[in-house]
Amino acid sequence: MYRIIKARLKQGYNTSRFPQVEPVLPPLFMGRPEVDAGACRGDCRDCMDACPVGAISRKGETLSMDLGKCLFCGECARICTSGAISFSRDYRMATSGRQDLSTDAWKLATALDAKARSVFGHSLKLRQVSAGGCNACEADVNVLNTLTFDLSRFGIQFVASPRHADGVLVTGPVTKNMEVALMKTMAAIPSPKFVVAVGSCAISGGIFQGNEEVCGGVEGMLPVDLYIPGCPPNPWTILDGLLRMVGQIGDRKKGR
């Protein structure tokens, strides 16, 4: 017992003060990409050819990046000689709509409506389903339960039974072999229920899009309420997204 208390003192207090205090991210961290339409020469397609997942397209005059597909490999920024693509250090990337994930229509996630917030704003239970996830997204979701993030202080918890859940958090491209299990889990959750798609795989199939063994993400299968892009998203990106959805960060932030 004495040893345990001594260790407790040595380990110290490590829970971050997020969201009041911004997280510290490594210098090379790649956050939300920015496309400088003015700088783009417009007559080459180096970035599009370099992208392993076809995340870059030209929409009329502007170059657009789809964060729902992007793996954040940085190839496009490296190859572009005119510096049209760069990665900011902004870890806030979650959106409410699929189209909001495009750099040309970029829009951060908004909170649930007032009625939903009054119920789920400070108590949201999620069932996590890994449907072909490589264990990186899973790990960065799981880490929110550690004391650095201490997810439960925001009233958000991962539960074992779908019957106890208010929604699912899906990772992975949804393999054909997990399709039934995912749909059954979803059906077992009482309504109203939310769907959170974490990682480019869950949003678009990611690097696996087009493989016959996968469904290509939850889009079209489940109604998604929150998209959290990345491969995998940084834990702060995930936490920020969840808190935006329940209205604890962002426009509708209520004095906390």
């Binding site: 370099a50 392993p52 997942v53 190839e75 890994s130 449907a131 072909g132 996830g133 992975g172 491209p173 393999t175 072999n177 997990m178 299990a181 690097i207 696996f208 493989n211 016959e212 063994e213 996968v214």
Partner: peptide, 18 residues
């Protein structure tokens, strides 16, 4: 088998950069 994403065959279809 639930996680099977067809990686070995996809590697042969993909350019090395992918």
């Amino acid at each position: 088998g639930y996680q099977h994403r067809g990686i070995e065959r996809a590697i042969l279809r993909a350019p090395l950069g992918k």
